[in-house]
């Protein structure tokens, strides 16, 4: 297929995955505003901003003490992360980019997918923070998350399984892996020294993994077990291992790209990442300083994921034409 269209679909997948991820975090966050202690709310905002590698508006990560400040700050922060067009990481921006990429590749996706995405976009585009805050912000985030889920379901049910489908999936998987690694790093960095169960519970909920956790590990929330589930579990659709394996599968199915060297390296790297999420992570128990080792492993995974994105671009989208095969 046309390289530029494939790239457009790849980015549609990436942006929408990003929008969904942020939407779920914000949903948890506005729920926490109702009944959780101030410290936990602060922790939540810090975790989001750190995982995005962004400073909150105003540039400070410390929050005003007291309940009133927390609520006022939360309004500003939610606006920044939801509707701010100048913030490239906001839900609005991710959605706008995802939709624009889809618009340019509308002929490569199904009509049902387009209508579904466009309807969601029309709804979000007509709202602002004041409107959703006044009513029930939970409902807004829940609906938006459901709309993205619906889009994915419609795609699953209607899209022709050609290369376009694979590139869109690849984009989603790479983005999901990147976001997971970043969020886990932020969690480890921001987690208070004395471990607070609530922070780990909310992490599980961000991945819709709380039920799975209870089924597998019982009711007690153990940070170690939580990390194991989110990193290595092969059955959890949002685990790091699951995302990386899916990325590896898509790359293999697409086959070698015209950028031959980058392509070979990408496949190798995807394999290495799968091994990291499965094998290396389990071996971390042997390390002298487990926490430091976990951090190092996640850093490495993040670097590899970024490289995987670059290699994908070089193999299929921006390859040099000198040694590209002629058909």
């Amino acid at each position: 297929m046309l390289a530029r269209s494939a790239e457009g679909l790849y980015w549609t997948g990436r942006h929408l995955e990003r929008a969904e991820h942020l939407c779920r975090l914000l949903w948890l966050q506005v729920e926490a505003l109702v009944d959780r202690p101030v410290e936990e709310i602060h922790f939540g905002w810090r975790r989001i901003y750190r995982s995005l590698r962004r400073a909150p508006p105003g540039g400070r990560e410390e929050f005003g003490a007291g309940e009133d400040y927390t609520l006022a700050d939360s309004y500003t922060l939610a606006d920044d992360l939801t509707f701010e067009p100048a913030n490239p990481d906001s839900l609005w921006s991710c959605f706008a980019s995802g939709r624009e990429n889809a618009r340019q590749t509308r002929h490569c996706i199904s009509g049902e997918m387009w209508t579904c995405l466009n309807l969601a976009w029309l709804r979000i585009g007509a709202l602002d923070i004041k409107q959703i805050w006044g009513a029930s912000p939970e409902t807004f985030y829940a609906e938006t998350a459901r709309e993205i889920d619906t889009f994915c379901g419609v795609a699953e049910a209607t899209m022709y399984r050609d290369e376009g489908w694979r590139f869109m999936r690849l984009g989603r998987c790479i983005e999901r892996a990147l976001l997971t690694v970043a969020l886990l790093r932020a969690q480890l960095d921001a987690a208070a020294q004395e471990e607070d169960e609530a922070e780990w519970t909310s992490l599980l909920r961000a991945y819709q993994a709380l039920e799975a956790y209870h089924r597998r590990h019982g009711l007690a929330i153990e940070p170690d077990a939580v990390l194991n589930l989110l990193v290595t579990d092969p059955l959890l659709p949002r685990s790091l291992r699951h995302s990386l394996q899916a990325a590896h599968t898509e790359l293999t199915a697409i086959g070698p790209g015209p950028g031959a060297r980058a392509s070979a390296e990408a496949t190798r790297l995807a394999g290495k990442l799968c091994a990291l999420a499965e094998h290396d992570w389990r071996q971390r128990q042997r390390a002298a300083d487990i926490h430091a080792h976990e951090g190092a492993l996640l850093r490495k995974a993040e670097g590899h994921c970024r490289r995987l994105h670059e290699l994908t671009t070089l193999s299929y989208f921006e390859y040099g034409i000198e040694d590209a095969p002629l058909h």
Binding site: A3, G257, P258, Y316, F317, Y319, I321, H327
Partner: peptide, 9 residues
């Protein structure tokens, strides 16, 4: 044209 599998006539 630049396709994902190389240059296509």
């Amino acid at each position: 044209m630049r396709s994902t599998s190389g240059l296509r006539r």
